[in-house]
Nucleic acid binder design. Sequence first.
DNA 1: ATGAAAGCGCTAACAC
DNA 2: GTGTTAGCGCTTTCAT
Lengths: 358, 358
Amino acid sequence: MAVTLAEVAAHAGVSPATVSRVLNGGYPVAGGTRTRVEQAIESLGYIANGPARALAAATSDLVGVLVHDVADSFFGILAGSLQRALAPSGPGAARKLAVVCNTEGAPETELAYLALLEGQRAGGIVLTGGAVEEPEHTSALTARIARTAASGAPVVLCGRPPLPLPAHLPVATVMFDDHGGAFRLAQHLLALGHRRIASIAGPPGLSTTRERLDGHRTALRQHGHGVADSCAALTVHAGFERAAGYDATRELLRRGAPFTAVAAANDTVATGVVAALRDAGIRIPEDVSVAGFDDLPFCGDTAPALTTVRVPLREAGTLAAHLVTGRRPLPPGGITTLPTELMVRGSTAPPPDERSSP
Amino acid sequence: MAVTLAEVAAHAGVSPATVSRVLNGGYPVAGGTRTRVEQAIESLGYIANGPARALAAATSDLVGVLVHDVADSFFGILAGSLQRALAPSGPGAARKLAVVCNTEGAPETELAYLALLEGQRAGGIVLTGGAVEEPEHTSALTARIARTAASGAPVVLCGRPPLPLPAHLPVATVMFDDHGGAFRLAQHLLALGHRRIASIAGPPGLSTTRERLDGHRTALRQHGHGVADSCAALTVHAGFERAAGYDATRELLRRGAPFTAVAAANDTVATGVVAALRDAGIRIPEDVSVAGFDDLPFCGDTAPALTTVRVPLREAGTLAAHLVTGRRPLPPGGITTLPTELMVRGSTAPPPDERSSP
DNA sequence: ATGAAAGCGCTAACAC
DNA sequence: GTGTTAGCGCTTTCAT
């Protein structure tokens, strides 16, 4: 058996309660006593039993991190910085453990993992990535989160819109300015002279899809001159994988409606778009411009380098970690919106017409 | 308070033990009783208390997954497939939770997390990625793992060499044929006509670095004609990030020793190599060929597409999950070596000399 | 500032 | 097949 707290207590000549106190801090313990206990812990190689502690305290050091898929760099980067920020360096820092759950973006899986984490008495939960905006799921999710938060475990929504919850619950929201980013990206394309701009949007019903598409269309509408009219014909919904971008682009080409630029749901999809266009003999950006979203690390190394919108994933992960551990107080109103930034690279250029007739 | 097992028992008119039995299976319970219990669980919305269960059973549903960095696609993909395989679909499947820990490749961090996971009574542990081959650390690690495994929690070493442990302990090793992959990659370069092949190797002291470099050099040596002689001058050790590849390449250029091909430690490093060469006015693959390792998803989309060695990350993750949960018995000898595959793409071509003088 | 004692919710012998 | 009964190792009032 492993060394127990009681053995440490015996070894140090104090009561279990005292050992518990020096372990958990926040309680007055005489200097000498503390030292003796610490030495006992050290010499016995004591490691606290997490489950026992969690059972007694009704909360654990586990932090649930729900992502659509860690293999996707978007989530990998987010989860990575989150995990890192959860483990503050320095001696005796109360190390939180990140329990990473792939929801695949499926509502039922999301709920199932939340139940599982509740069962583990997770000390906090971070839900990342776009939310499925279906009334039934939203209310089920809201109810479940309300329970978790009411039990004292902070919940952070990261990269998704806030939920209608009582203000007193420990729930915070960290959003990305997807709308603004998409808006500025569309403006960039319009400024280059593009008028027929296609969208390979994300899955319908997802908050991220809605926000990016809204920002995009708002810019087109604002530009006027009927630029927004062809939206329906030039929009294809697809998944977030490269293959989805490839297939959606083929579908777009099949439709036959002309376009000179494509705004993809994200960078990964954009690589699929580029591949499909190229396979169709279309040059980028000479014939058609392509833009991504997120600014994943590979964006600068693709051919051509991808124009995109930077989403501050690392910052978001760190912030989410601080909020969920209570190291940073909940922001007033509970919502923080992180800025996005347009990154112009080689995959966008003026449309063919503009070049031939300057 | 949450609903407890005792309440479920009362509601169903049975004893707590019976409820526990239907919950955990593997024990005979009369059909009718089982049904009543299941209904009680359902109607009360019972969720088992993980910590309590872990305390009593001395093992939890937590599986520790140590990675260098989840934000790195290599580990993201590995961790993703592992996590997915840990959560078998189907009703009532005993869902294991993946606790992802970023070790940054640092020995102390690795040990610290192992201690933390031991404290959590993790039901299994998977250590992924290259191992730091320093005698002191290896023995500390071996001791720690021996303890964990002795307590009944399976340990899987994934992508790193086996450790000298008693055969009766539940420890399995899943390796990649890095040596063979690097060997074949070097052969490919030699076959193209390259004779001065540089290596941007990984950090010294890491098993992955050693194996890939060994494979590479074995091929050069085997080729003869003094091809292996320039190894020292043409080898630079660096980290696994893109920036490391960039800097190492500049260092290589600074040295002045001529080379016509570069084998990078991995794909990410290779992108940095490509960027540095390009910034120096060197064309790829016309002037210099570049190859990566791992075959991460972006390899086909870079300019030019990257020749590399495919490492079966998804397969490894799934296998590791099966081994650590006991769903797959430990292989005889405890070691499984997964094959790697040479992926020839556009970044490698014959060296300049060969073209001008055919 | 420290100790004593009562659980936290579950599993696992052991009876019946 | 099902019930009884001890703990598992820790936290946390409540005393002192």
